[in-house]
């Protein structure tokens, strides 16, 4: 029985991380309308900016996390402003933007590897002295508890901003139809820029969470991005609540699968889930 509780707990923690990734991705996708694979690199950027400020120049941990989140957000904004917006002005299709985003992914990952080397690094300073909590026979660490809480906070925050504020209304208008949004006086490029920054910042936070939970390496973003996208698709692409639901469902399936087969097949299981959904329910659980 205990093992099942532990699997459920692991699934909840992984689900919280996937929620963050899927939220950032969904936000960007819903307004920009293309699969931004460069987002995978922003996850790593968050992790590495925190690594630099926390472990290399010894800033307090909260400041370091803030720097990580801000760097990822700023970079996302710059990429949107100087590459994607230019492409959009040339009437580029989603596929063109997707290829450009592959270029962005490659460049950022390589630059990270040049600055910090390709070695696997951990973010936490006090390995071994982490506090743990017992929940119904399972164990989670204090870091994991914090990840779960921050996942919930970000999820609620995004939900409230989108549904209750004027800014959220503008974002939803652009997501619906950016041309019409422009006609009624919404500055669509500006909204796209802000959403990219917020999405990038959330992606960066997910990278930091993974960094404290396990560790960081320059290519970490690729499989995490894939998980986030799978979560977004099985939840119903473009839907915020769908993304959250998809994230926890994916994490549960993955962890149950890893328990039944072996840990190394986790990624393959996640991919099988994606294929199954694309074939049988391409619009996801909560299709709009």
């Amino acid at each position: 029985m205990d093992i099942l509780v532990q699997i459920l707990l692991n699934a909840v923690i992984a689900g919280a991380i996937y929620t963050l990734i899927a939220l950032g991705f969904t936000l960007m996708y819903s307004t920009a309308k293309f699969f931004d694979l460069g987002y995978g690199a922003l996850i790593a950027v968050g992790g590495y900016a925190t690594y630099w400020s926390y472990k290399q120049i010894d800033l307090p941990v909260w400041l370091a996390i803030g720097i990580g989140v801000a760097t990822a957000g700023l970079l996302a904004f710059l990429v949107e402003r100087f590459i994607y917006r230019k492409l959009r002005e040339r009437k580029a299709s989603g596929t063109i933007l997707l290829i450009a985003s592959l270029g962005v992914l490659t460049i950022i990952q390589a630059v990270i590897a040049i600055i910090f080397s390709s070695q696997f690094q951990t973010l936490s300073k006090n390995i071994g002295s982490t506090r743990t909590f017992n929940i119904a026979g399972g164990v989670i660490t204090d870091v994991q508890a914090l990840i779960f809480i921050s996942g919930l906070v970000i999820m609620t925050g995004v939900g409230i901003v989108l549904s209750r504020t004027l800014f959220g209304k503008a974002v939803r208008a652009v997501a619906d139809d950016s041309t019409v949004a422009s006609i009624v006086g919404i500055n669509s490029p500006r909204i796209l820029g802000i959403v990219a920054a917020v999405g990038g910042a959330i992606g960066g936070l997910s990278g930091i969470a993974v960094g404290f939970d396990t560790g960081i390496e320059p290519l970490m973003g690729m499989s995490l991005l894939l998980k986030g996208v799978i979560a977004a698709i099985i939840g119903g692409i473009g839907s915020i609540y769908g993304a959250v639901l998809g994230a926890f469902l994916l994490a549960l399936i993955e962890n149950l699968g890893a328990w039944q087969f072996a840990g190394e097949w986790k990624d393959a299981i996640a991919f099988a889930v994606l294929i199954a959904f694309l074939l049988f329910r391409p619009k996801g659980i909560l299709s709009k």
Partner: peptide, 24 residues
Amino acid sequence: SDVAAQMRQVTYGAILVLFMLYRP
């Protein structure tokens, strides 16, 4: 050599971005 390998990646990435922008 390890930096050169990464610089190579930067070149490929830049080619993708620049060609999408100026000569798809």
